[in-house]
Design a protein around this nucleic acid. Structure first.
Length: 497
RNA sequence: GGCCCUAUCGUCUAACGGUUAGGACGACAGAUUCUCAAUCUGUUAAUCCGGGUUCGAUUCCCGGUAGGGUCACCA
């Protein structure tokens, strides 16, 4: 495959759907696999949907996922401009060319006429493709009206009864007829192109070789095919990607959690985990089949790039399974070296942390102590966002807990619990520090104390855990005490006496 | 409703005419453990239905059913 150029072409709506990341990833991978270019084009032809700062979101998200474009408005490239609103004169020129050729026409219907058509179509229960009454208006007459100041659009002139056969790299062969297709608008009355015109013109001019886009574009394929034909341009290879479905049915929606790419990041997912999860939604490695490596499901972006091919994609639509994503994230979190884990968390706090008190507490504790705390959490959390809550007890004195509510302590007498606390405090006061006490000796002491008061060792640990952390769930007690240090431990246990 | 697409455990998927239909997530059970996790082991569960084609269909064809997409001066 020579000269592979792919593109990602989002609209700047202010947020990037997680499905868009998957589309971009596939496009990115194909380009990289074949030593080609991956470009980013901003499709901002809908003025009514202009959102301030939306382009920043797109660039920032792609960057965080490592899907950095080779060409774009911000990365350079000689096929620009890469923002459609900066290409208006280009679209106008090509639209007018089509009019001159007879493949499009100036059209003057009012909003009312259009609404009437729609009403009739609906009443008939069946939908007929729209045929504009202006499609056969002599060009001279149309030009006169325009000169007179009439508002106009340019519509594509759909031929009657023409079969269209389309070959999709993923979907296979599809057949359509122009009788089902509208005389669709190519150039709007505000001078902006519609998607159909812009996408064809741009993909050609930018020399895009492979187009990845969602299946929602399939119904408009005939329009695009006819445009390529009218211009006499060769079509790129198309792959219409399945849509990611919501567990509740339909397109992945916001009902149950995030759908925007940066929301997932904010929720504490690692980009590489997200990417790995996403790539498996509709793709499976060819190596599985060849080598029987059916158990493999961890792929770095590099692994993916090395083996990605359109033919390994699935046509059916996958359901977005948040449990599995969570599992992937946990796995990736665990695989991180302690240093990288700490870095991932501190980066996350810098980016998304909104608790100023907590941030100050981290600074006050110092990097070494924070690292010690974090290492204890590495196998215990599934997302980075869970971490702040788990560290609270280090910084804030926990409330006291009623033992009656704690399973292991229910059957103990007040005497027993108090005895354990008093003896432990006595032992502790003899130690220089928790660290110098040492894990072995510390644990032996607790066990001995437990025995002395006729309490199970587990219950003694639990009683201490509750006093020190305020919760029946915590990281290993000795390590926790080492971080908290002698004085704090004494104070906290003292509260129960 | 018209047009288009899809259909293997609850979910993601493998098996490109011949397998005891495999793996992963989840769930459940056990092991381990000072708790919760993590880890290890095991169990659970699928070819949508009906016709063909074939010696033989998860796999090919047709129909049904179900799900999805789309029918804008939005992309």
């Amino acid at each position: 495959m020579n000269h592979v150029r792919t593109r990602f072409a989002p609209s700047p709506t202010g947020f990037l759907h997680i499905g868009g990341v998957r589309t971009a990833m596939y496009a990115f991978a194909l380009a990289k696999r074949h030593g080609g270019q991956f470009l980013l084009r901003v499709e901002d032809t809908d003025q009514t949907r202009f959102v301030e700062g939306a382009e920043d979101v797109i660039f920032s998200v792609l960057d965080q996922f490592g899907l950095t474009p080779d060409e774009s408005d911000r990365h350079g490239g000689d096929k620009g401009p890469y923002r459609q609103s900066d290409r208006l004169d280009i679209y106008k020129k090509y639209a007018e060319q089509l009019v001159e050729q007879g493949d499009a026409f100036y059209s003057f219907e009012s909003k009312e006429e259009l609404a009437e058509h729609r009403r009739v179509a609906e009443a008939n229960k069946e939908r007929f493709a729209y045929r504009s009454p202006y499609r056969d208006l002599p060009l001279e007459e149309a030009k006169k009206r325009i000169a007179a100041g009439d508002e106009y659009v340019i519509r594509q002139k759909m031929p009657a009864g023409q079969g269209i056969i389309f070959e999709d790299a993923l979907q296979g062969t599809m057949k359509f007829t122009t009788d089902d297709v509208d005389d669709g608008i190519l150039l709007k009355s505000d001078g902006f192109p519609t998607y159909h015109l812009a996408v064809v013109v741009d993909d050609h001019l930018m020399e895009v070789s492979h187009v990845f886009r969602g299946v929602e574009w399939i119904p408009s394929i005939p329009k695009h095919v006819l445009l390529y034909k009218a211009f006499g341009w060769e079509m790129p290879v198309f792959a219409h990607l399945s849509l990611i479905l919501d567990p509740g049915g339909g397109k992945l929606s916001k009902r149950k959690g995030a759908v925007a790419a940066d929301e997932f990041l904010k929720e504490g997912y690692l980009p590489q985990a997200l990417l790995n999860f996403l790539m498996l939604l509709g793709w499976s490695s060819p190596q599985e089949r060849e080598h029987g490596e059916s158990e493999r499901e961890f792929f770095s972006m590099q692994d993916f790039v090395e083996q990605f091919d359109i033919s390994d994609l699935n046509k059916s639509s996958p359901v977005f399974n948040r449990e599995k994503l969570l599992w992937f994230n946990q796995q990736y979190l665990q695989q991180l070296s302690p240093d990288l884990f700490v870095r991932a968390f501190t980066d996350w706090v810098d980016h998304y942390g909104d608790d100023e008190t907590f941030k100050q507490q981290l600074v006050a504790a110092g990097p070494e102590k924070v690292q010690n705390m974090l290492v204890l959490e590495q196998t215990r959390v599934k997302t980075l966002a869970e971490i702040p809550a788990t560290l609270q007890f280090y910084f804030n004195e926990p409330g006291t807990v009623s033992f009656a509510e704690v399973k292991q302590l229910k059957n103990l007498t007040d005497e027993q619990v108090a005895g354990v606390y008093r003896d432990f405090l006595a032992e502790l006061s003899r130690q220089e520090s928790v660290s110098s006490w040492g894990h072995e000796a510390w644990e032996q002491s607790v066990r001995t104390i437990a025995e002395r008061h006729d309490v199970k060792a587990g219950s003694a640990f639990m009683a201490l855990r509750i006093a020190v952390t305020g919760s029946p769930f915590s990281p290993p007690l000795f390590e926790v005490m080492e971080i908290l240090q002698k004085d704090t431990i004494q104070e906290r246990i003292q509260r129960y006496l």
